[in-house]
Design a protein around this nucleic acid. Structure first.
Lengths: 161, 161
DNA sequence: GGCATATATTTCAAGCTTAAAATATTTTTG
DNA sequence: CAAAAATATTTTAAGCTTGAAATATATGCC
């Protein structure tokens, strides 16, 4: 009996995929740590707060708590705490939803909008600088690869987009 | 005065790089959430614990606390807590470092080694499945791109490897 | 209408994470 | 050698995160 070629090939791409994942994780953590530090120093804020503001910025009419946690793909209880603090800081407000007394709609205040616009512009510059050696073509190519991976992954796992 | 071409191009690649980062983050979080859930259900463990065990598995002689936190790129105090719990569970042990009474060396116990071997094998299968539609060539190509990005990023930022 | 079930949100307990302060020890240097 | 500076680690306070339990309200069913 000879060595099974498929098994050898499978092992090889398994190891390579694992390496790919470790590299992906390393980049992701590097960028995240970098952005986290800049948010702290320049805006006295955090990544979770930025994420919440970013989501609300896209929806001027506001979002329900559950829509917000769904978008950010974090737990409900998690968002409660972050929103509490942002409300206390006057960057967002909670308003009741007419017709459903269980639900609350959250949206940016005027100040929250202005503050986030500043943070978003800075964030864009930070990312542009960190990824400055990625050409437009390269970036486009990687984005399509990622989209393909994401589409496939959402089938494999229960994990939504 | 005509529109400045360089500025237009810069804006375009800035936006594309931002999109690239958001996609990268999405994949990274999807995979992480998936692995986290599987570690919880199948091994009653967590990602930070897995990371610590993985680091120690590569260094059978053990690592100092500061080497460990350096490798994982997390704070010193963070590792203290995770190590405390792993010690309590009998998966690792702390031993004094001869000649330096400030330092402690941490290494896997026999049980920790056996337990991690199981987790690592399962982890490899999970990743292989999640990234199953990435071909060997594609993976290799992405790995080089990532390495290049990482090398460039470490110059831009104070952020080490 | 009234009871069961479902949905929206918060609370809770436990663990993760950080930056900064505290502790203990080692090394440098005057 | 003693004071000062540096290093290794832990502790602390605050915030983030999760899954599960609790609370409040709404919807479906008889």
């Amino acid at each position: 009996m000879t060595i099974s070629a498929p098994e050898v090939a499978a092992t090889m791409s398994t190891k390579t995929r694992l390496r790919l994942w470790l590299r992906l994780l390393k980049i992701s953590r590097s960028v995240e740590n970098n952005v986290r530090e800049k948010l702290r120093v320049e805006f006295d804020s955090t990544l979770p707060r930025f994420d919440v503001l970013a989501a609300l910025y896209q929806f001027p009419k506001g979002l329900r708590m559950s829509e917000l946690s769904g978008l950010l793909k974090v737990s409900n209880g998690n968002v409660t705490g972050i929103v509490d603090r942002l409300v206390k800081d006057g960057l967002i407000i909670r308003t009741p939803v007419p017709g459903d007394r269980r639900a609350l709609r959250v949206r940016l205040t005027k100040r929250g909008e202005e503050e986030f616009a500043l943070q978003a512009a800075a964030h864009e510059r930070w990312i542009d600088s960190l990824l400055s050696d990625v050409s437009l073509d390269e970036a486009d190519h990687m984005i399509s690869s990622f989209d393909q991976i994401l589409a496939n992954m959402n089938d494999k796992a229960g994990e939504a987009s």
